[in-house]
Every structure is written in C-alpha cells, then in structure tokens.
C-alpha cells in the first residue's frame, strides 16, 4: 500500500532535480552572489580594502582605481556593511568560473567627483 503511494506520487510530483543549464540557477532575494561596484559613488575612503577578511579589494587612491579579485572574494558582504557611501552592493548571481587564461582581476575607474564644497573624507 505504501509503495503504491510512493509510485503515484512520482506521477503527480514535479521532478526534484533542477534542469540547471536550461533553467536559471535558483537563488533568493537575499542571496549573496557577487559584489557590485558603483564607481560614481566611491570616495576612495579605502574602508572596504581595510575591512575585507580575505583582502580581495584594492583601492588605489592616487590612480583612482578600485580593483577586485573575484577569486579571493568570499562574498561575506562586510564591505557592503562598512561602505558609508552606498557604492557597494550584493547581487544574487554567482561569479562565473574562468579558464586559466581568462583569470584576472576586475578593475574599475572611480568616476566620483567631489561636490562643490570639499570636505574631509574618512580614512587617513
């Protein structure tokens, strides 16, 4: 009797397996997938660089660049918490894999322009 139930369930139940490559990957609104950087808001205060547990972020204040190594980032979201300027956010999609030749760091040029009245930013 129990077996019949199990067998019948198979016919009316959706398959458990996700058809991943055809279907989009599953995630939720709160999933920490990868880090997104908004170059127009970054004041290069370097807080994200200092507080990153795996030191995946490098902010160069002189060259005005913001660099992330996706192969070091642990997606903890600590940088998002410490960023006071809303320049960082977490997106749902995971970072893509890379072949040996494609592996590298992602580099952004900071386009933030200081407002008219210059004031001191955080950091040293």
């Amino acid at each position: 009797m129990k077996m019949l139930k199990t067998i019948l369930k198979q016919f009316f139940h959706e398959p458990v397996t996700t058809l991943f490559p055809e279907e989009p990957p599953r995630n939720y609104a709160g999933t920490r997938g990868h880090l997104v950087f908004d170059p127009s808001k970054c004041t290069s205060c370097t807080m994200c660089m200092k507080r990153c547990p795996s030191q995946a972020i490098i902010v160069d204040r002189a060259a005005k660049t913001w660099i992330i190594d996706r192969f070091r980032c642990v997606m903890c979201g600590n940088c998002v918490d410490v960023c006071k300027f809303d320049s960082l956010s977490m997106e749902r999609e995971y970072s893509k894999s890379a072949a040996a030749a494609e592996r590298g760091v992602e580099k952004f040029d900071i386009t933030y322009v200081k407002p008219e009245k210059p004031k001191k930013e955080g950091g040293e």
């Binding site: 458990v16 939720y28 709160g30 999933t31 920490r32 997606m75 903890c76 979201g77 918490d81 977490m90």
Partner: peptide, 30 residues
C-alpha cells in the same frame, strides 16, 4: 534531498547556503 530544502530555508533567510555569514558581534545582520 531533504537537506536541500533545509539549505533553501537557510539561504532564503541568511543569504548563504552552507556558509551563512549572518552573525556579527552585537547581534545578527539580517
């Protein structure tokens, strides 16, 4: 298979499947 549904609950609430990253000193983040 059952474990996956638990992981889904964890991911929906914390944002991570096996490494949740939701605790912080002084409370929780979410």
């Amino acid at each position: 298979k059952i474990r996956e549904s638990i992981l889904n609950e964890l991911e929906a609430t914390t944002g991570g499947r096996v490494i949740q990253g939701v605790c912080k000193v002084g409370g929780v983040r979410r």
